[in-house]
Nucleic acid binder design. Structure first.
Length: 588
RNA sequence: GGGGCCGUAGCUCAAUUGGUUAGAGUACCGGACUGUCGAUCCGGUGGUUGCGGGUUCGAGUCCCGUCGGCCUCGCCA
């Protein structure tokens, strides 16, 4: 070892020890007669002092030190003189009086300074990721990530799960997200696909008798990126045989308790709150509601139908919905101009035609440009139903049900943050259950799987597969943390006939399902046990537990929004020889 | 594919309504200083205002295009 200690561990008890530290020069203060260096590694910072007692050559050499030089410094641990103790550093009581200095490597002036308080632009941070990752904040987050994954692995091992690796090169599944494809050299014209998840492999493992499987699995989806979405991401993937939904949920419940306790020191009480999909959509307009605050959606279609306001009447009469919510304190917080911005927000982002609003005045009456279309008694009914208090802002969207959901969900999220309706430090865990099996795809004029095509219907809804697929509910469960989908799973179909029936409903005829999923249908005929599981989004867990608002801060080497790596410049072009071997021609 | 924000010194930012030689902090370079810890003090270097066009007597500022970063809708079984 080139060092005897790290830069975070020396304390007053170590006085007079001869030590050698290695690290990066975080900052230096040259006083002419003496020079101070804060030496940094991932464990902390320690002050190294150069003075006359260091000897002339060492002192002179120290004058060459600059930010991010890598050095090895040997010397005695000493008390700092009275009055110079630094309370901000855990090592602040001591310093190392350097007697031997080795410059292990120099550094250019860092583009991204690990010690700087102002955060450089994210493009620079990504391009010089080796510098950005030196920042204590990034090191803290990646350490947190490591801890979370370890807790998960421990938990599943304690529960008898076996870690099995599944292929990265697989077969393209046409449903779901767009695949990343890998051309085959040996089979010209054929391609592998990178897995969107290990879904089918883990089901096959259940059929193979590995009744408790777990894997930290990299998944790939070639779709557009978001603040919480990367093209490659990591799932804690698990599957169990001979279980029902309660068994899977229970294993995750205890994991949540463990991680919350051991990572955050937080006691989570079980059972976690549960809500059905229908209830979540009705009360919050979304299947992963943020339950840290109220501001629930309220249906006022019946009241709207009684008004003279043409927009409300028209929508109510044509089968649409008029739904609203009460933004507490919003009447005081938002100006006319702010409300115009909110209107543009719901129009541009969610396709709402407009936003109707009422400000609750000090005397409890409702002020609005459209108030004249409502008589006083009706206004009072709106006011009562939304439990309006002076200073509140009542917001309404009139449209088809789906649009009211999206627009009000978007508003609720935005206003919840802007009006500070919750403490950002709280953590809220819940389950959303009883998802529909199918959603109707208007473009394709076709039922589409809400979760995936292998999801089992609830036994009591089995008949609905034939009579009314839209009403058929799945044995599905999503883990929601602070309004974020942190995991999702289902009980799978283990019956060949039901699986065939679902494929058929999804528009896959016998030949197509045989071609794509023949291996699954085959396996289902050789003694497939009942099974189900779940996948947890590890990157999102890190975001939520680490209070990061950006998934890129939770991944060592993430992609930009345009799915490039600014450090390596991936994806890149390849030469004609490589393309020729693969039988690929670039057309445009 | 659509909507929005941003791009000025190595870095973080400023620059009035379109108007003088584009400034500040920090970093960097030189000097001073034995106790600092965002060291301090003195002096200095540093600019294709992302790129290309246009409008104008005059563009960092306005317009069009383009490149890049971010947020978002669509998309994400």
């Amino acid at each position: 070892m080139l060092r005897t200690h790290t830069c975070g561990e020396l304390r007053a008890e170590c006085i007079d020890q001869e030590v050698t530290l290695c690290g990066w020069v975080d900052s230096y203060r040259d006083h002419g007669g003496g020079l101070f260096v804060d030496l940094r590694d991932r464990y902390g910072k320690t002050q190294v002092v150069f003075g006359p007692e260091s000897g002339e050559s060492v002192l002179n050499a120290s004058r060459a030190l600059r930010a991010e030089f890598v050095i090895s410094a040997t010397g005695k641990v000493a008390h700092r003189p009275e009055g110079t103790v630094n309370d901000k550093l855990p090592t602040g009581a001591i310093e190392v009086r350097c007697s031997q200095l080795q410059i292990l490597n120099s550094s250019l002036t860092p583009v991204v300074s690990p010690s700087q308080t102002e955060l450089p632009g994210e493009d620079l941070r990504l391009k010089h990721r080796y510098l950005d990752l030196r920042r204590p904040e990034m090191q803290k987050t990646l350490f947190l990530r490591s801890q979370i994954v370890k807790k998960m692995r421990d938990h599943f091992e304690e529960h008898g799960f076996i870690d099995v690796e599944t292929p990265v090169l697989g077969r393209s599944t046409p449903e779901g997200a767009r695949d990343y494809l890998v051309p085959s050299r040996i089979h010209r014209g054929a391609v592998y696909a990178l897995p969107q998840s290990p879904q089918l492999y883990k089901q096959i493992l259940m059929m193979a008798g590995y009744d408790r499987y777990v894997q930290v699995a990299r998944c790939f989806r070639d779709e557009d990126l978001r603040a919480d979405r990367q093209p490659e991401f990591t799932q804690l993937d698990m599957e169990m045989a001979f279980v029902d939904a309660e068994d899977v949920i229970s294993v995750i419940d205890s994991l949540v308790v463990k991680v919350a306790r051991e990572i955050l020191g937080l006691e989570v009480t079980l059972p976690l709150p549960r809500m059905t999909y229908d209830e979540a959509m009705e009360r919050f307009g979304h299947d992963a509601p943020d339950l840290r605050f109220g501001m629930e959606l309220v249906d006022c279609t019946d009241l709207a139908a009684q008004s003279e306001f043409r927009v409300f009447r028209g929508v109510a009469d044509s089968g649409g919905k008029v739904r609203g919510m009460n933004a507490p304190g919003g009447g005081k917080h938002y100006s006319r101009k702010n409300i115009d911005e909110l209107t543009e927000f719901v129009q541009n982002d969610f396709g709402a035609k407009g936003l109707a609003w009422f400000r609750v005045e000090d005397d409890g009456t409702l002020f609005s440009p459209i108030a004249k279309n409502f008589d006083a008694a009706l206004l009072q009914q709106f006011s009562d139903r939304l439990q309006a208090q002076p200073g509140d802002l009542l917001l309404f969207v009139a449209d088809v049900w789906e649009v009211t959901c999206k627009a009000l969900y978007g508003l609720r999220r935005r206003l919840g943050a802007e009006l500070k309706l919750y403490d950002p430090d709280t953590m809220h865990f819940s389950w959303v259950v009883e998802f529909p099996m199918f959603a109707f795809d208007e473009d394709e004029q076709q039922w589409a799987a809400m979760h995936h095509p292998f999801t089992a219907p609830r036994p009591e809804d089995l008949d609905l597969l034939d009579s009314n697929p839209g009403q058929c509910r799945a044995q599905a469960y999503d883990l929601v943390i602070n309004g974020s989908e942190a995991g999702g799973g289902t009980i799978r179909i283990h019956d060949n006939e039901i699986q065939k029936k679902v494929f058929k409903l999804l528009g896959l005829d016998e030949a197509a399902s045989q071609e794509r999923f023949g291996f699954l249908l085959d396996a289902l005929q050789y003694g497939a046990p009942p099974h189900g599981g779940i996948a947890l989004g590890i990157d999102r867990w890190v975001m939520l537990f680490g209070k990061r608002e950006n998934i890129r801060d939770c991944i060592a080497f993430p992609k930009t929004q345009r799915a490039t790596d600014l450090m390596t410049d991936a994806p890149g072009k390849v030469g004609p020889k490589q393309l020729e071997e693969l039988g690929i021609r670039i057309v445009s």
